[in-house]
Nucleic acid binder design. Structure first.
Lengths: 329, 329
DNA sequence: CCTGACTCTGACAACGTTGTCCATGTCTTG
DNA sequence: CAAGACATGGACAACGTTGTCAGAGTCAGG
């Protein structure tokens, strides 16, 4: 910048003014400075600029896995909102590891991001309160923060599962199974709750061997499913608690002599091309990201100190056929 | 930091030393400083630090769409390598718009990222040469840079398609169709080349109505496919030039009275669950990202000025059945 | 007791920008 | 023509850190 000033024969501050398109510079001078910038290939150093202005125009996004088909569109939505607000996006995957989540979050804070969007991997976010007090706007998405009162944007997991189970009930099922992720994960617990509520609302019992919670590896899902199908009162329909479960379920069910009704949680590409096409309860992944990001920027634009909010986005049942298979009589 | 120094009763530089775990500070002093840091909730401002050290420990990734099932795992692989090198990752989607690509790249440069990984959306990257000369390591992925000599990591697109076509030929096909993306896109052109080469290698002609290049919207793909199937010498097998084409092709083909052999380019989840299971030529998306990122950090660690390299990763044929349907006699 | 070597520590400048404030020159108006 | 208003430009400090260097203290050996 010094070089540019020298070459254009003006003061440092004048170059700054030109770069920032501030008013109060003669067109003639502007031209001279522009020429010098061009000639020297000068590019403003935003790090320095931001050190001075104390706004980095960047936000950090921490999620479980950037490559996950659910989080990828969420990230993209966040990115779009960030772009609209002139901010750049740092991303990081926590891989469901609380320590890694914290590392990432604190690294972003050290970079002095303006705001943070976090899909919690840990259940204790008190480490964040000094940062929040220091002015880092923070929005949690998909799962609520642990031991911290902060903005959160969620899917109505319980409601979605209720709709899914109700769909199965409406098609004549009475013995319905549920396979979900580890109960410590908030979304998994919520979905289980939805399952119980829907069954209860229809006056149906829930046998202990009709539901299983735990890691959603193919082996485990397969075992749980076998168990549900071979007990004294085998289920005639299954609600799969997330997309990994759904995929494994489709594999197992396709090998069965007669089909079993299935509703999956989370939509996935090509669900409509399977046979039978898979009915799902779809979350609005881009919606979650967009909503969270918009909330973040609203905080940044002034409503900083309002009370934390909780937003719930509906899940949507997409009937495709697999939920409409009637129970064997 | 000033406050910390005052509270601990030491000089500014000593705090700096403690924060950076530099040697040569009495354990006693370290403890006092640590206590002060703790008490004040101090966190080093990396922006300032990086202004001084001229290394931001961050890299920028520009790709077409963060949410795309091909690019998401690529990003994740880049992120993992970056983390291993202690760097943070900026991401941005160009949405195949050259202007947006340039905006993102230059914004990252203004932030003084150490390096850049770019999936080109434009065909002219000369705007990058001043940055590269200024020391920003740059690696292109998936497609080569335009009018610029730079590192690039590619899939062997032509080779992959050759294998796919050879697979179809091996199963008795002679009239094979190809539907690809717009010919201006490097990967699409390469794949078309592979198709032609494989046909030529087998001594087979290629009729003009056997291949179609253009936007891969469902409508267009459907039209192209109809055309190939209804001409005087209808194709008996299809090579789909990317995953969007594959999906549409599966939809159309499943409605046909008798099946047609299909090989898709790019693997996709659940391909094995469709009926028939879809044979594909799979790219190694994480491999592309990993290789590019590793190359980037090698550049950063010293081999800055070596000549640009070109790396080609193989594509892998995954036979699943849809390519083994014999031609109607 | 002096010297030299060594260990800690702190003052200061610098990184590249922007905000503040003042100086200069020009124009308008009474 | 004088005086004030306005437009333009520049000097300087500051943002929060680190690199350089030199000063202060400690210790061992002569």
């Amino acid at each position: 910048m010094k070089d540019v000033a020298a070459r254009a024969g003006v003061g440092l501050k004048t170059v700054s003014r030109v770069v920032n398109e501030e008013a109060g510079v003669t067109p003639d001078t502007v031209a001279r400075v522009q020429a010098a910038i061009e000639a020297l290939g000068f590019r403003r150093n935003d790090s320095a600029r931001l050190l001075r202005t104390r706004r980095t125009s960047s936000i950090g996004l921490v999620l479980e896995d950037l490559a996950d088909p659910f989080y990828a569109p969420l990230s993209r939505a966040v990115e779009d909102v960030a772009r609209a607000h002139g901010a750049l996006l740092f991303t990081g995957s926590s891989a469901e590891d609380p320590r890694r989540e914290q590392e990432l979050v604190l690294a972003f804070c050290a970079r002095r991001v303006d705001g943070l969007i976090v899909v919690p991997a840990s259940d204790d976010h008190r480490y964040l309160s000094p940062e929040i007090e220091a002015g880092v706007a923070t929005v949690f998405v998909d799962r609520p923060a642990g031991r911290l009162d902060a903005d959160v944007v969620l899917t109505d997991n319980a409601g979605g599962v209720r709709d899914g189970v109700a769909h199965l009930i409406a098609h004549g099922h009475r013995r319905i199974g549920f396979i979900g992720d580890q109960p410590g994960i908030h979304t998994a617990a919520e979905r289980l709750r939805g399952y119980r509520e829907a069954m209860a609302a229809a006056g149906l019992p829930v046998r202990d061997d009709w539901y299983a919670m735990g890691p959603t590896t193919p082996d485990r899902v397969r075992a749980s499913l076998d168990h549900m199908l071979s007990g004294p009162e085998p289920v005639t329909a299954l609600l799969a608690g997330n997309n990994r479960v759904t995929v494994t379920a489709v594999r197992v069910l396709s090998g069965l002599p007669r089909p079993i009704a299935l509703v999956g949680f989370d939509d996935f590409e090509l669900a409509d091309l399977l046979s039978p096409p898979v009915t799902v309860v779809a979350q609005d992944a881009p919606g979650l990201g967009r909503t969270a990001a918009q909330l973040l920027f609203r905080r940044l634009d002034g409503m900083a100190s309002d009370a934390p909010t909780r937003t719930e986005l509906p899940a949507r049942l997409i009937p495709r056929g697999s939920g409409e298979i009637p129970p064997a009589s």
